[in-house]
């Protein structure tokens, strides 16, 4: 049997904080699309925004176990804040982004005390209720939001005063991708910290987490607020890059779609939202080309299959296979004498 020294232990424990080759490659590919796929920037921009929105849901669903069907509340609020600011002459996109994130965070903090009460079903329903209320408020306050006609006259200034938002979506995509990357790095760092570990422990077993001395509710309030800020940022990106906001940003289907994206990509490892967004958008694009009216049928079918096939098991199988191949290629010794490693679900 092999015994571990302190250094081994540290290496394994800090593993989560290190960037792997595949991760770096992933982001290099994302940057490459900026250069090599110029005619696809509009849809790529949408993907980046959905990815950020799904990342936000992953923070609470995948890491803290909070199921929400009302996440569009924060997305929509962010979109309206950024949109209205730009309409009122404060066109600097970064200021709009920050204001949207802040407003969504405040709403998140305020509603967290409601949402974190009670069972999973209560959480789900309260979050849904908050989103519905917000949607109706936006509808009634037509003088501010444009109501059902949507918010007209959103004028966003050039990014950093240099890059005009063009009709091909190149600036938009570069902007969204950068924001996604920065917020992703932040989320990644937070989840690799002791705080992130405590969230996973709460998701796995709140009873024990409390018995270790973790103030469970306070930790959940913090992550809920952070997730709200992320969703608000995603909403702001949408408002700024398409320069229009409609009631649709608060609609129920947005909350449902983002859940779908996370189910497709997998919750609890941060990349799930991004991969899910890519797959979802490409599927949507392809299927709605194929059958414009019935594409949701196929999405539904894929969803059912995904859930039934137990993706976790498939992924871990693929991983073992990949590790074995990689080991054979490089003759690398396993870092620790173990047979199985914990999956981050």
């Amino acid at each position: 049997m092999k015994s571990h020294t302190e250094d081994d232990v540290r290496r394994v424990l800090t593993r989560r904080g290190r960037w792997g080759f595949s991760e770096i490659a992933f982001w290099l590919v994302a940057v490459a699309t900026l250069v090599f796929m110029p005619d696809r920037h509009l849809i790529l921009n949408e993907i980046a925004i959905i990815a950020l929105f799904a990342l936000s849901l992953d923070l609470i669903l995948g890491y803290a176990g909070i199921v929400s069907l009302g996440h569009a509340a924060f997305f929509g609020l962010g979109a309206y804040v950024a949109g209205i600011l730009a309409q009122q002459g404060i066109g600097n996109p970064l200021i709009g982004l920050a204001a949207a994130a802040l407003a969504a965070a405040i709403l998140g903090l305020a509603t967290s005390f409601l949402v974190l009460r009670g069972s999973d079903l209560t959480k789900l329903m309260v979050a849904l209720g908050v989103a519905l209320i917000l949607g109706e408020v936006a509808n009634r306050m037509a003088w501010l939001t444009g109501g059902a006609d949507g918010l007209q006259g959103v004028n966003v200034s050039p990014l950093l005063g240099l890059f005009e938002f063009d009709m091909f979506g190149t600036t938009a995509y570069a902007y969204s991708l950068t924001v996604l990357f920065v917020l992703f790095v932040l989320a990644r760092r937070v989840m690799a910290s002791p705080y992130g570990l405590s969230l996973r422990s709460i998701r796995d077993n709140p009873l024990r987490a409390r018995a270790i001395g973790i103030p469970v509710n306070r930790r959940l309030v913090v992550i809920y607020t952070l997730a709200a800020a992320y969703a608000g940022s995603a909403g702001a990106l949408l408002a700024q890059t398409i320069q229009f906001v409609s009631l649709d940003v608060l609609a129920f289907h947005r909350s449902a779609d983002v859940m779908l994206v996370l189910v497709i990509g997998g919750a609890g490892y941060l990349y799930g939202g991004i991969i899910g967004a890519v797959v979802f958008k490409i599927l949507q694009d392809y299927l709605s080309d194929l059958t414009p009216q019935y594409w949701l049928f196929w999405i539904g079918l894929i969803l059912v299959l995904l859930v039934l096939m137990d993706r976790e098991r498939m992924v871990s199988k693929a991983r073992t296979l990949w590790k074995r191949t990689a080991n054979r290629l490089t003759h690398r010794a396993e870092p620790l004498a173990t047979t199985r490693t914990a999956r981050e679900i």
């Binding site: 910290s193 002791p194 705080y195 930790r219």
Partner: peptide, 21 residues
């Protein structure tokens, strides 16, 4: 165990440092 130890040392509020550093 790392979680319990770092919670005791007040690490649960530490959201920036990587666990185990």
């Amino acid at each position: 165990i790392g979680l319990a130890v770092s919670e005791r040392m007040g690490g649960g509020r530490d959201w920036w440092r990587v666990t185990g550093s």
